[in-house]
């Protein structure tokens, strides 16, 4: 598995797309910092971008990579290799190269700007951690979609739909549920609703760390009480990890059964 991982990783690291992705974050970081001059405000703007863009890129890129390397995969399948290690290796190769682009691309401008001397370092690390998690989650989901759909167009469609659902539609449904049940105490419901969607969970985790959390008022206080404790942090990171593990398990399961 490690060998395949290494191969996919180096292959991707040499590809044009990771350079574009890397350059995009580098430019974004530089632009934000040198136009804004305020580290914590830059973190908020970055959060907006990361929460929307990272899942989208993860989903699309994962599907794309799977379809593109399909012939190579079939070649590998002819070798005496475990199926799970082939697909896991490919998955990890994609996810890691995307994460590396994200971390280094954003990291360089921030480090040059003087991140280590600033208080924003924890906010920033949280941003990178959640960004990495989102990459892992959405790439895994993308591999699932690609494994289940032979048709490329259908696969891309589902990937975009998945992103659309988790990034936008889910919030709409969530909002409607909250408004429908406004006569009841909503603290637990809103907590659970946030926990279930990795994008919402990441957004809340970052927002609560920033000054802007004072805007959340009473609800924010409840959330802070929950996420501020070790228990809350452990629960939310566990949720994120479960969001990674479940699709990965399905990759293993599906790839074993799939007829090529």
């Amino acid at each position: 598995m490690l060998k395949i991982l290494k191969y996919s990783f180096y292959d991707l690291m040499r590809s044009r797309w990771s350079y574009v992705y890397f350059a995009f974050y580098l430019l974004l970081g530089i632009l934000l910092l040198f136009l804004n001059n305020d580290l914590s405000k830059a973190v908020i703007t970055l959060m907006n971008v990361i929460i929307v863009l990272v899942p989208l890129i993860g989903a699309i890129f994962g599907v794309m990579y799977y379809y593109n390397s399909k012939e190579f995969t079939e070649l590998l399948l002819a070798q005496p290799l475990k199926r799970s290690s082939i697909f896991l290796g490919q998955y990890l190769g994609v996810a890691l190269s995307l994460s590396v682009s994200l971390i280094i691309g954003l990291g360089i401008p921030f480090v040059f700007y003087g991140l280590f001397k600033s208080n924003a370092i924890w906010d920033f690390s949280l941003l990178l951690i959640t960004g990495t998690f989102l990459t892992l989650i959405f790439t895994a989901l993308a591999f699932n979609i690609a494994l289940s759909n032979e048709n490329k167009i259908k696969g891309f469609g589902y990937a975009i739909l998945l992103w659309l659902f988790l990034a936008i539609i889910y919030d709409g449904l969530f909002l409607m549920t909250l408004i429908m049940f406004e006569d009841y105490p909503l603290d637990k419901l809103s907590l659970v609703g946030t926990m279930l969607n990795p994008i919402d969970l990441s957004r809340t985790l970052i927002l609560l760390k920033l000054d802007i959390s004072a805007l959340l008022g009473y609800t924010g206080a409840i959330f802070k009480q929950f996420f501020g404790t070790n228990f809350g942090l452990i629960v939310s990171f566990t949720t994120l990890i479960v969001w990674v593990i479940l699709p990965v398990l399905r990759i293993v399961f599906k790839s074993k059964k799939k007829d090529f």
């Binding site: 908020i44 936008i168 909002l175 408004i179 946030t194 957004r203 609800t219 924010g220």
Partner: peptide
């Protein structure tokens, strides 16, 4: 008031 938790969401 609880909906404030969706602050900064794309939706």
């Amino acid at each position: 008031p609880e909906t404030i938790i969706l602050l900064r969401s794309l939706f």
